[in-house]
Nucleic acid binder design. Structure first.
Lengths: 132, 132
DNA sequence: TACCTTATTGATAATAGATATCAATATGAA
DNA sequence: TTCATATTGATATCTATTATCAATAAGGTA
């Protein structure tokens, strides 16, 4: 049941919720849910292929995604917010051109962009730290 | 002084050492070094641009790199080992083609490959788990 | 050299995010 | 209803890392 709530929360979340985000949403109307359950169910849903997971970078929380197709993300290095990126390329380009350690079997790749989102840029301007 | 030891350890390490790896190397001949010092100095060296850092994925330790130029890495999803990847592409291709949230300022990108290294593939074969 | 200021260090506590444990409860088929 | 299985909440634990802070080292200046 809480699994279903978790799934719905991800689907309806505008953007890329972290486990904490999902927990907050659910517990606002189902206050007895445990954080462990949210983590557990997010993992399960991801393993089942029902939700996506943003390639998770150290120093930021893991973020989930209602999209399950392979696409790219940009992460704001200031606040950790994740946004979708639309970029067309032929992924065969990589898998063919890749050379690396003998015997390494390639499964997938992730293309991740880093930068600063508008909110954080505005915040920095206000703080007068932009010229440093 | 320990800073210098840290630097040398990264330079001479075959591959992409984690903080733990570096600590192990140094403490083998300088047993009083503190782990905090290693973490601190790895960060400092990275900030100074003297060593590189592999785009760090959650669930694995951070890995450092004697190379400081922008290049790609593959990570073994079984054991966390990092290997260099040689792949030619025009990065302008991305920065130009990228469209995302209004106002997001792009700084950099990372192209990360995931797969299984030969060691881990062999280990799985031995365990008889390869056919699952 | 003695003095002072700043930087670095080691030991340790603390943190965040996530996972493991486990008894209690729910579910669902027979 | 009964039994087996799955899910849950509460909590302890984990791992990698950072923060704290007193002690020490380094380095410039007089």
């Amino acid at each position: 049941m809480q699994r279903e709530l978790t799934y719905e929360a991800v689907l309806s979340y505008p953007g890329h919720p972290s486990a904490e985000d999902v927990y907050r949403v659910i517990s606002s109307r189902y206050s007895t849910i445990s954080k462990a359950t949210v983590y557990r169910n997010l993992n399960a849903l991801y393993e089942e292929g029902k939700i996506g997971k943003v390639p998770p970078m150290i120093g930021y929380e893991a973020h989930y995604d209602h999209r399950t197709d392979h696409h790219c993300h940009a992460i704001c290095t200031r606040c950790g917010k994740v946004v979708d990126v639309d970029v067309q390329y032929d992924s065969a380009m990589f898998t063919n051109a890749v050379s690396m350690e003998e015997g390494f079997m390639l499964d997938s790749h992730d293309l991740i962009f880093e930068g600063t989102c508008m909110e954080c840029r505005n915040k920095e301007k206000e703080d007068g730290t932009e010229g440093i």
